[in-house]
Design a protein around this nucleic acid. Structure first.
Lengths: 210, 210
DNA sequence: AAGCCAATCTTGACAACGATCAGATCAGCC
DNA sequence: GGCTGATCTGATCGTTGTCAAGATTGGCTT
């Protein structure tokens, strides 16, 4: 009844409270969902007073940023893994998209925090561009035949793909899609089908229905 | 019949408070942005006590639902208009997508409310399917050559397009895209380019860079 | 016309939240 | 051994969503 979980008797000075807060936040996001996340709840979960976090984060939003940061890491890792065990064939981009969406489906609350964070900063997380998932997409694009020296073309392609994946990630949960999903043989099949449909915008007249 | 808003000797019974609350909410969303929306603020803006809304909405979320409802209407209307003045050519789907994104760009707070509402209900708004924007997309798809009797194909296509548009809508604001956008000649050109890139998922081996 | 009902709005309250501040506590360095 | 600065607590402020109890009134019944 004293405190929550991690450490022993709290010696007033927590060893690494920042770390503990982020972990607590992640735990709460997984268990309670995005609604039950408050600075006070995180502090409670970490076993400290409601004011303690302010010595490690200026804001509530800065705490969420820290959560998002780890989320982006985790996402990139999972996408990398998916790519690693995928056949070297041609639809590796789809594999990436599916991995992206799957992450968002398995960690919906964290994913939402990640994206809200990006939106409030009006920018993609920096790390992403350097060694994260964005880089992965670019590499796979080049692999697929895009000329790496065509900067505009490459960026355009990466951005388009990212947008599509994000859109799918946020809408796949709609229950209206249940029947269609079942008819296609599960979520992965559904996702692959969706991604494969995305050439419809091409102004190339008629399109073939799957 | 009498008017609604501010600075009157309110006759205790407000005439049509529900309507006034929704209008107040929309005003606040436009002016203050999504952050400054609270049940109390809406009540304040409408000139009533903080508890008054509870006679017209069970929840705060139900008030937001009402706002979202009108938003979907407005969106459908704008998409319809865009389609009406577009050339009967082949890229009408792109026109629809651009209109969608433009709406979200010009009413970001409302758009966010609309989508949060959908997400919390885990379903698209019903109205949408019947006479709203979704219907519009389906019609345009059929127009573009999809067999209307292939239900699965049609739904898949519509869903894919919607996902893509939503993704673009939520990411276009990133400031990293500024340079690219400028280089392409403004936001509309940027959007058209993005949408035209969305065939990249097609497992058709190499792709042509724009 | 009188009277009452139920819908409407207000008042007042509650718990929870983000945020701030003065002060208690403790680690590490002189 | 004592000082300094980082860390944590407790108390507090303003705000939020929500509810219960009371005031007010339009409209139906007689």
């Amino acid at each position: 009844m004293e405190q929550a979980q991690l450490t022993e008797a709290r010696p007033y000075h927590h060893g690494d409270l920042r770390r503990a807060l982020v972990d607590a936040g992640r735990r709460l996001l997984e268990v309670e969902g995005g609604a039950g996340i408050s600075l006070r709840a995180v502090a409670r979960e970490a076993g400290v007073s409601p004011a303690a976090p302010y010595h490690h984060f200026r804001d509530k939003s800065e705490l969420l940023d820290a959560l998002a940061f780890e989320g982006w890491d985790q996402l990139a890792e999972q996408m990398r893994a998916a790519l690693a065990e995928a056949a070297p064939g041609r639809d590796r981009l789809v594999t990436l998209g599916v991995a992206y969406v799957r992450f968002s489906r398995m960690n919906p609350a964290i994913y939402r925090v990640m994206f809200n964070c990006s939106q409030s900063h009006e920018s993609m997380p920096e790390k992403l561009r350097d060694e994260g998932a964005y880089r992965l997409v670019c590499d796979t694009l080049v692999e697929s035949g895009i000329d790496p020296r065509d900067e505009v073309g490459l960026e355009l392609a990466a951005v388009a793909i990212w947008c599509a994946a994000h859109g799918v990630a946020e809408m796949v949960g709609f229950k209206e899609f249940g029947p269609l999903q079942a008819r296609l043989g599960g979520e992965e099949a559904f996702l692959r089908a969706i991604f494969s449909q995305l050439d419809l915008f091409r102004p190339r007249s008629a399109v073939a229905a799957g």
